[in-house]
Amino acid sequence: MSHVSKFHLPTVKEQNGVQDSVHEKVISVSGEGMLHSPDFPHTYPRNSMLVWRLVAATNMRIQLTFDERFGLEDPEDGICKYDFVEIEDPNEKTLLGRWCGSQSAPAGHTSKGNQVIVRFTSDEYFPSEPGFCIHYSLLPEIISEHETPAVSSPSLQGIEELSEAVAGLGTVEEVMKYLEPERWQLDMEELYKPTWHVLGKSFIHNKKARGGADLNQLREEVRLYSCTPRNYSVSLREELRRTDAIFWPSCVLVKRCGGNCACCSNRCYDCQCLPARVTKKYHEVLLLKHRSGGRGLQKTMTDVPLEHHEECACVCKDDSD
């Protein structure tokens, strides 16, 4: 049985297959064992940063199970920012999840390769109890390879099936929970990290008509509602001609020319409402895309450029030819 001793200054090698390095403890897993926050099940210390790397034989997988006694500092706005424990799969170079709070213990995990990394972080404020404890054990590779989920993972769904499922969700949080139920909080935090993208200017402000005589008001109403920029919803996949990606929300509002041209010149038999001034505005949306090689979904906040019609005019088709 392997086990972890308390953290201290690095040494070359310890007993029981536990080796120290400057950045992490490497644990050679040959049976069952556990790792936990310092002083578990009591209050853990402040300002801690501990890393364990569990390594099994190449033909084995590592199964992790959280102790039911679990309690770290609560999240802020649903995101674990301060005190948390997280699990990384170094073979896939992805985080399996990050957890904090004290509502319930996280679900178990099985590594895809023969290694797994566990990190524990606490800041200088509000340590909690009891912390966490993770039990680990071994599984033969053949078992983990033949396990098949009861429901198809969203990351394995086709682009059209996934697009339809995501379009029916009401919030970004619901999208993240659907895609990655175990690590959606971490995905939310990653989405809203500052980026240096160009942001579009504010939308056009509606101009209010002046007061005046009734006839003037009638004419002004015709001008406002006949051939003017107005809100239209457009599908981002169709507008951008992107069949390889999914956007959420799938539709956004843009200003496009609309309305009739009944007051066009009597000599014109085919009068059309056309844009007289066009600008490009950027809309920040969530972009979902399959990674190359089938390695899950890439989730990013991105700016998409869309045309907005700021001024419209009635133009005789003969004049526009």
Score class of each variant (00 low, 15 high):
residue 226 S to Q: 02
residue 238 E to F: 08
residue 242 R to T: 13
residue 227 C to Y: 03
residue 259 G to Y: 04
residue 256 R to T: 09
residue 246 I to G: 01
residue 245 A to Y: 05
residue 226 S to W: 00
residue 238 E to M: 06
residue 230 R to P: 01
residue 247 F to R: 01
residue 227 C to P: 04
residue 234 V to C: 06
residue 236 L to T: 00
residue 227 C to E: 00
residue 244 D to K: 09
residue 241 R to Y: 07
residue 228 T to P: 05
residue 259 G to Q: 05
residue 242 R to L: 08
residue 229 P to G: 00
residue 232 Y to M: 09
residue 247 F to S: 05
residue 230 R to M: 14
residue 258 G to A: 12
residue 228 T to K: 12
residue 239 E to F: 09
residue 250 S to H: 12
residue 225 Y to C: 12
residue 245 A to W: 12
residue 255 K to S: 04
residue 227 C to N: 07
residue 259 G to V: 01
residue 226 S to P: 00
residue 240 L to T: 09
residue 262 A to H: 12
residue 260 N to K: 14
residue 245 A to I: 14
residue 233 S to N: 13
residue 244 D to G: 03
residue 259 G to D: 03
residue 259 G to L: 10
residue 252 V to H: 03
residue 232 Y to L: 05
residue 244 D to W: 04
residue 258 G to K: 06
residue 255 K to W: 00
residue 231 N to C: 11
residue 262 A to V: 13
residue 239 E to S: 03
residue 242 R to I: 07
residue 250 S to F: 06
residue 242 R to M: 08
residue 250 S to C: 06
residue 236 L to H: 04
residue 227 C to M: 07
residue 241 R to W: 10
residue 255 K to L: 12
residue 262 A to G: 11
residue 238 E to C: 01
residue 238 E to Y: 03
residue 233 S to P: 02
residue 259 G to P: 05
residue 256 R to M: 08
residue 234 V to N: 02
residue 250 S to N: 13
residue 247 F to A: 03
residue 255 K to N: 08
residue 261 C to A: 13
residue 237 R to Y: 01
residue 229 P to T: 02
residue 259 G to W: 10
residue 243 T to A: 15
residue 240 L to N: 02
residue 237 R to C: 07
residue 257 C to L: 06
residue 241 R to D: 10
residue 231 N to M: 09
residue 242 R to W: 09
residue 255 K to M: 15
residue 228 T to A: 13
residue 227 C to K: 01
residue 246 I to V: 14
residue 229 P to C: 03
